[in-house]
């Protein structure tokens, strides 16, 4: 006997777990949050399919932010870290061959972007941009420097906790997700209006990466572990019995 699986519609999103559109303490959400009820309907092929990305789009240093913007023989300044984990769906199944993009500020909290005017210096050897494609079972990893916290115009004296932005695809376009990874123990986490758009401590914990001593490379690089869960589809398992038995 073997099992075959029939994939059904996407499991509806838990809107009480996800942040509300309107979170007034995060001021930019006030004029950018839809107010009408969302239109719900079961997923169709348009949502159950997703673009394909091949490894041939990747450059050799795309997953190494310490070196991918550095001059020959130089490297980015900051605490060297590995970020690694697994991209899974809600059924706990790893998602291979999916594109993961990440971007972040430098060790001083400054982004390489023309709209970022924070007085902290740019690091000439740090771009802050990387990407990878998940391996078998959804595993991914990249190397970077730990980003710094930075101030932002919101409430007068708001500082973002150190964070890395993530963009993830999956196997159906309704799985599309952008989120942020925080670092265990950062005192800015509980003060941040963007973090506080989350509805529970559990949701904040889900975005907070713990130090992972097992993956730390002695005298070289610390490691943080960050798993990401995308939506899943209803799955129905059928037993396949052989004829005549």
């Amino acid at each position: 006997m073997s099992l075959s699986v029939q994939k059904g519609k996407f499991i509806p999103r838990d809107r009480e777990w996800q942040p509300e559109a309107l979170t007034p303490a995060y001021k930019s959400s006030v004029k950018r949050s839809p107010q009408a009820a969302l239109l719900s309907f079961p997923s169709t092929l348009s949502e159950e399919t997703s673009p394909i990305f091949n490894n041939n789009i990747l450059g050799p240093l795309d997953n190494d932010l310490i070196f991918n913007h550095a001059k020959p023989g130089e490297s980015a300044i900051g605490a060297r870290i590995i970020v690694h984990g697994q991209i899974l769906d809600e059924n706990g199944i790893g998602i291979p061959d999916t594109l993961v993009e990440f971007w972040q500020a430098n060790a001083g909290g400054r982004y390489r972007h023309k709209n970022d005017r924070y007085l902290a210096n740019l690091d000439p050897n740090f771009g802050g941009c990387g990407r990878t494609i998940t391996a078998e079972n959804g595993f991914y990893e990249f190397r970077t420097i730990q980003p710094g916290p930075y101030p932002w115009p919101n409430g007068g004296n708001d500082w973002r906790p150190a964070h890395i932005h993530f963009s993830i695809f999956g196997y159906g376009f309704v799985q599309r997700l952008i989120t942020q990874m925080y670092f265990e123990g950062d005192p800015h986490i509980k003060l941040c209006p963007i973090v506080n758009s989350l509805t529970s401590k559990e949701a904040v914990d889900a975005l907070t990466a713990p130090l992972d001593m097992k993956r730390t490379i002695p005298m070289n690089c610390r490691a943080f572990k960050f798993n990401i869960v995308l939506r899943g589809r209803h799955q129905t398992y059928f037993e396949n019995r052989k004829e005549g038995l």
């Binding site: 777990w17 952008i178 942020q180 989350l198 869960v229």
Partner: peptide
Amino acid sequence: LKESPSQT
């Protein structure tokens, strides 16, 4: 598993 929460 719970879906990872979104952030802006």
